[in-house]
Amino acid sequence: MEPIREKAYAKVNLSLDILGKRQDGYHEVSMIMQQISLHDLIEISTGRQPGIKITSNKSKLPLNKNNLVYKAAEKLANYHQIHLQKESIIIHIEKNIPVAAGLAGGSADAAATFCALNRYWKKEVAENDLMDLGKEIGADVPYCLMGGTALAEGIGEKLTPLKVKTPMWMVLVKPPFSASTAEVYKAFSMASGNRRPDNQKIIEALSKGKLATLAFFMENVLQPVTTSMVPEIEKVQKKLLEFNAFHAMMSGSGTTVFGLFKTRKKAESAYEKLRKIYQETYIAHTIHHR
């Protein structure tokens, strides 16, 4: 059988607000997620030894049961009642999305694994059922399955698709430092008084293509927390604005900072300058449908 390939698209947060902490320890969020063209590639092929084998072009990636791709494959096999003691699957992850960067790379890989394995096994699963399976692996997996632009609520699993009038170009920079998502959320305080996003205004601006309004109401309440741990975030943000981004902000819990640009030409100009300073610099555009 020919290998099955599926793109795993990264995401950025156009906003991230925290509404409170739940009794189960998770945080109640309200955020606008945006899929972008930066992607990993998942490839499924037949192996010789029974079970799941994961390979990757990145040596630092866990290639065992700790990888969300492994968890996705195992969960989908159980769903389809496929016995992995008899099946032999190799899943190769061509990693392009930076790791531990606030871009949902692991969740995107898990979502793409679901889709690729369904094609490999010639199975059809309703998207809602896949999203329910994904929720058991990670809060961002259902969104990565749906893609496009969405308002995410609850712990990120309650999704409302959004319409966007104007595609956008962006440059992303991952500083050579990471921050633990768990530590960032732990350090966040509802009483901090940091500026919060206005998601309704952002949704309206996206639907009308009003980029200046969009920029004014965008905010990530975790950015001050992560910046206190990784001060380089603020330097990256200033550089992106210096190189003509109309807005720059951290994605997720960090540490990647992305700048939004009004034209591809401006984005390419900033990308060329920034990649001379930061090794992990990327250029991408928004994706509004799968």
Results as ranks from 00 to 15, higher is better:
1 M>E: 05
1 M>W: 01
5 R>I: 02
13 N>Y: 09
32 I>M: 04
36 I>A: 05
39 H>L: 00
40 D>G: 01
44 I>V: 15
45 S>E: 15
46 T>G: 03
52 I>Y: 06
62 P>N: 06
66 N>A: 07
72 A>N: 06
75 K>F: 00
76 L>E: 02
77 A>D: 07
78 N>S: 15
80 H>G: 00
88 S>G: 09
89 I>K: 08
96 N>W: 06
102 G>N: 12
105 G>P: 11
116 A>V: 10
120 Y>H: 14
131 M>R: 12
132 D>F: 00
138 G>A: 04
138 G>D: 07
143 Y>I: 03
144 C>T: 10
151 L>H: 09
159 L>C: 12
170 M>T: 11
174 K>C: 09
176 P>Y: 03
182 A>E: 13
189 S>C: 08
190 M>T: 13
192 S>W: 05
196 R>F: 07
199 N>M: 09
205 A>V: 07
205 A>S: 15
207 S>P: 07
211 L>D: 06
214 L>E: 04
225 V>K: 05
233 I>A: 04
234 E>Q: 14
251 S>F: 13
253 S>M: 11
257 V>K: 04
260 L>Y: 06
261 F>D: 02
265 K>P: 00
269 S>P: 00
272 E>H: 14
275 R>L: 02
279 Q>P: 00
284 A>N: 03
287 I>S: 04
287 I>W: 01
289 H>W: 04
290 R>P: 15
